[in-house]
């Protein structure tokens, strides 16, 4: 486990992914901390960090002390599994579904881990970095409607 304060004054904690629930539980239950509000949960994909490609980022808020903290765990691409936080926070349900939907991170123990914003037939995880956005200058695509490259037919 490591903790540091980022340059914008927010405490950032990193822990091994097996411990994510333990850390969240500690932060939740500790009477002086009481990080009992899950502000945000999302994922980040770092293809260059071998073995730690996928990050799950929690933003927690202690309303009692009015403190925020960022908590990160990393998971490898081959086994993108972390424990679900739905037992602690009902809010985590859809946030984890969204993270699964876009990054393919499997939240073990989640009651209903299926896609939420994308169609269920989708077989890839679109926010991963191996799916770059289309090059805006490409000209090989014949798209008459939006005038991108191709051959625009003359209207007689």
């Amino acid at each position: 486990m490591s903790a540091m304060v980022d340059s914008y004054g927010l405490l950032e904690i990193t822990a091994p992914r097996e411990l994510n629930l333990k850390v969240l539980n500690f932060l939740y239950d500790n009477p002086t901390l009481q990080f009992q509000f899950l502000t945000d949960l999302t994922g980040v994909h770092y293809p260059s960090k071998k073995g730690n490609e996928l990050a799950v980022v929690y933003h927690l808020h202690s309303l009692k002390e009015n403190l925020r903290v960022r908590f990160k765990v990393f998971a490898p691409l081959e086994q993108p599994e972390v424990y679900t936080a739905t037992g602690l926070f009902s809010a985590a349900n859809w946030m984890e579904r969204e993270t699964y939907d876009f990054f393919g991170i499997l939240f073990l123990g989640h009651p209903n881990l299926k896609r939420i914003l994308n169609v269920e037939q989708m077989d890839y995880f679109p926010l991963r970095k191996e799916f770059p956005l289309e090059d805006q200058t490409r000209i090989d695509k014949d798209d008459e409607m939006f005038g991108r490259g191709g051959t625009l037919k003359q209207i007689d």
Partner: peptide, 12 residues
């Protein structure tokens, strides 16, 4: 069921 007007803003 949500996602009917998902426009992938985070990707864009």
């Amino acid at each position: 069921t949500i996602g009917y007007i998902h426009r992938a803003f985070e990707k864009i």
